[in-house]
Amino acid sequence: MLGEILNTYYLQIGSFILINIMLAISVYVPLSSGQLSLGSAGFMGVGAYTSALLTIHFDLPIFVGVIAGALAASILGVIVGIPSLRLSGVYLAIATLGLGEVIRVIFVNWDSLTKGSVGLTGIPQLGREILEFSRGLGFEPAMIGIRNNQFVFLSIFLVLLILVIAILWFVIRQQNSRVGRALQSINMDDRAAESMGINITHYKVVAFTQGAFFAGLAGALFAHVIGYISPADFSYHRAVEVLIFTVFGGSEVIIGSVFGAFFLTLMPEVLRFVSEFRYIIYGILLVVLMAVRPQGILDANLLKKFKFKRSKGGVR
């Protein structure tokens, strides 16, 4: 019964949606303090390569690799974040875009470690490791009536879902805390914020590093879901794609990033029946949206309306 509902194709798309939500959040967090970062593809690549290399060469468990990947990306985020804070607006965007390209070029040229543009094969797959682990505990997928590969993709999906919920919980909590208020005030006017005694350097680095951490985490998970990475996966196309998730969904509220990533990942798949035209439709949709609703589909006003209709509370 359960076995018929769980289609691996849907679970696979679901997994990519969740990874893209993490990436969209990694753009959203720095953006909520007024920093436009296009380095998400680069940080994602650092996370992916770190985790892949550690698990391939040192046989480390995947969760150690993923954490190491995310930490490596956030360390890089601190190192790059501190000097780049002298920049703002488009200048920061260009600097981070450049950073992403530099990272990609390093992956291309560091042949002995990364195998250049051919990429890394044989990365341990998250779902299969979970399957083996649970078999070690005496659990067989057949016990709950599903096939092995359904179990593999279901477990990936659930792990990602838990992580995304945890990240969302963390970011929403942070927004309603002192840190979040500080970030918001920097976003509105950083001079005014500074004169109110907010240490803007500190908070900006915090936001930027969190973005790098989430991107690195998403990248590491991407590597273990797909099982193969090459520098082409982390080109500036990816950075722009991730930025579009956030801008499309609405960059003022976190739920906008989630919606954007969900909608824009699902759409090319849903549009498969028109084959060659699907990216044309995708493009037209973006143009129309930017023309009629430059702030993105969801914004604070829209959410407020929903709040009136429902009870108070609701999501932010």
Partner: peptide
């Protein structure tokens, strides 16, 4: 049964999953 991959590894994997299902 022809599916598009858009030249991206993740899209190709989605297409493969769709075909395999």
């Amino acid at each position: 049964v022809i599916e598009d991959s858009a030249g991206k590894a993740d899209q190709a994997l989605n297409a493969a999953q769709k075909i395999m299902s």
